[in-house]
Write a protein that binds this DNA or RNA. Structure first.
Length: 479
RNA sequence: GUCCCCAUCGUCUAGUUGGCCUAGGACAUCGCCCUUUCACGGCGACGACAGGGGUUCGAAUCCCCUUGGGGACGCCA
């Protein structure tokens, strides 16, 4: 039997981290077994579903590389099919019309809760045995068995047994005739030949009712695997107040898709002590039977670490393009400086995200703003003046603008001035970048370029001569 | 409230059918080394079987209770 999994987002918002992991698990499982994954848009809640959300979700999946083999199917385009099933259920007695008003239902729930009971429908219309008259409002309810219990083997949680007395006669068609979730899922899973339902833990309680519907339809059951939810760092359900929860936000943060995937796959799943998995390894090693039973907390620090790992080994040109895009986003033209790929080579070992890389690359493309106060106070001092003067002269006369030659010049000037290398390198860093932190100074000087290096050196010397009075504020930004 | 589920370092986790666990790895944190600043890298430190009962020669691993946490109880999905 070919494995068929599915990812069924409801388009009421962005694709969040938890959904992405569910999609990943479905994708990995299908890929690993030569099966396929269906993308199904569960938009039966027409009030809250939007086309924009559909677009954003698909965009996120494409960014992550989680491709689907079939779909996207839209449930709103299958209403005729659901109607047909509902009519069938009505005809064979598996469903019935209910005329209870929302008010009655609310009162019922309220009183049950007050009495310490689990709120559920009281079967008021279950045995009425009549159809709505013209113009009369009615919903359709599934006639859930009263006795016994539903038992199923969940791949991750093991045997699950829930008593039918715990289950409601759930509404499968609203007053306006549109079908609801628990019905559409089952119909679709049957029609689309889904063999494995891998979904969030929050659906575990729905499963027995859905199983009853599967039975009513005479359909065979798929394999169920309910994966624990992802919690926030505080152990509470992951939500916006924990920071970014949307996949696309991570993209905009400068996270690489393969890093997010790698981080996500390790949440609730592991393979010994291995931390890094490329796509092929994941596909090869992943199995739903190895999914953990307990919920995991999202940890940004670890994601950042994984991202750093991938930044260090990613293709330079690819990162160069990403860097260029980040720079562009903050109004800087990459053409105003070195080829992004060169900057990538210099910075890739020192950043955790592409956005951080852009932050650290700014001075290659635009004049640095005011000097960082402490750095200027400590390093752009009178003692540094003669050294910088000598350095500027030597650099101006340097024949080959290459890192090794630049390095030699700095060493020579330092020696001639009776200074140690850092005593020259640090002020130079401040002059070039505005702060004391840069990659190796020779490479930095090389990439900043001769013209800019000399003009920034001149500005630094002016700063020292004027005793820091107009400390770099006359330059501001000019990209 | 009712029903269901979960429980190893702060976090992600390893821990094959109970013995090799003095509980391993990774992130984070803190030190030291490397060093041209910051990183990277190397080395090291800190740090957990929620608590209590059993079962057993022996339990992180099995059972029960307690506690803590999560989920579900919609004409949402």
């Amino acid at each position: 039997m070919t494995v068929v999994t599915r990812f069924p987002p409801s388009p009421t918002g962005y694709l969040h981290i938890g959904g992405a992991r569910t999609a990943l698990f479905n994708w990995l499982y299908a890929r690993g077994r030569g099966g396929e994954m269906v993308l199904r848009i569960e938009d039966t809640d027409t009030e809250r579903s939007t086309q924009e959300a559909v677009d954003v979700i698909m965009q996120a999946m494409e960014w992550l590389g989680l491709s689907w083999n079939r779909g996207p199917y839209f449930q709103t385009r299958r209403f005729d099919r659901y109607r047909e099933v509902i009519d069938g259920l009505l005809a064979d007695g598996h469903a019935y019309h209910c005329f209870c008003s929302r008010e009655r239902l609310e009162d019922l729930r309220e009183s049950q809760r007050a009495a310490g009971e689990k709120p559920r429908y009281d079967h008021h219309c279950r045995d009425l045995g009549r159809k709505p008259e013209a113009g009369e409002d009615a919903v359709v309810r599934f006639r859930n068995p009263l006795e016994g219990s539903v038992v199923f083997d969940d791949v991750v949680r093991g045997r699950v047994e829930i008593s039918n007395s715990e289950m409601d006669d759930l509404i499968i068609a609203r007053t306006d005739g549109t079908p609801t979730y628990n019905l559409t899922v089952v119909v679709d899973d049957v029609d689309m030949g889904i063999t494995h339902v891998i979904r969030g833990d929050d659906h575990t309680n729905n499963t027995p009712r859905q199983i009853n519907i599967f039975h009513a339809l005479g359909a065979s059951l798929p394999v169920f695997a309910h994966v624990p939810l992802i919690l926030g760092p505080d152990g509470q359900r992951l939500s916006k107040r924990h920071g970014a929860v949307s996949v696309l936000e991570y993209r905009d943060m400068g996270i690489l898709p393969e890093a997010l995937l790698n981080y996500l796959v390790r949440l609730g799943w592991s393979h010994g002590d291995q931390e890094i998995f490329d796509l092929d390894e994941m596909i090869d090693l992943f199995d739903i039977t190895d999914i953990n039973r307990s919920a995991a907390s999202f940890d940004l620090d670890k994601l950042l670490w994984v991202n750093q790992h991938y930044i260090r080994q990613a293709d330079v040109d690819r990162l160069g393009n990403l860097l260029a895009r980040c720079l562009h986003r903050r109004g800087i033209r990459p053409s105003d400086g070195p080829r992004p790929g060169e900057v990538v080579e210099l910075l890739r070992e020192r950043v955790q995200t592409m956005v951080q890389m852009a932050d650290q690359a700014l001075y290659f493309y635009a004049e640095p703003g005011a000097y960082q106060p402490e750095a200027a106070a400590k390093h752009l001092v009178p003692e540094a003046l003669p050294r910088l003067e000598a350095l500027a002269e030597a650099l101006g006369a340097l024949e080959n603008w290459r890192a090794e030659d630049i390095n030699r010049v700095i060493k020579d000037v330092a020696a001639a001035q009776g200074a140690k290398f850092p005593q020259l390198a640090i002020p130079l860093r401040v002059a070039l970048s505005g702060d004391t932190v840069t990659p190796s100074i020779d490479q930095t000087v090389r990439l900043v370029g001769r013209e800019r290096t000399l003009s920034r050196l001149a500005r630094a010397m002016e700063f020292i001569r004027s005793d820091g009075v107009n400390g770099g504020k006359n330059t501001g930004k000019n990209a």
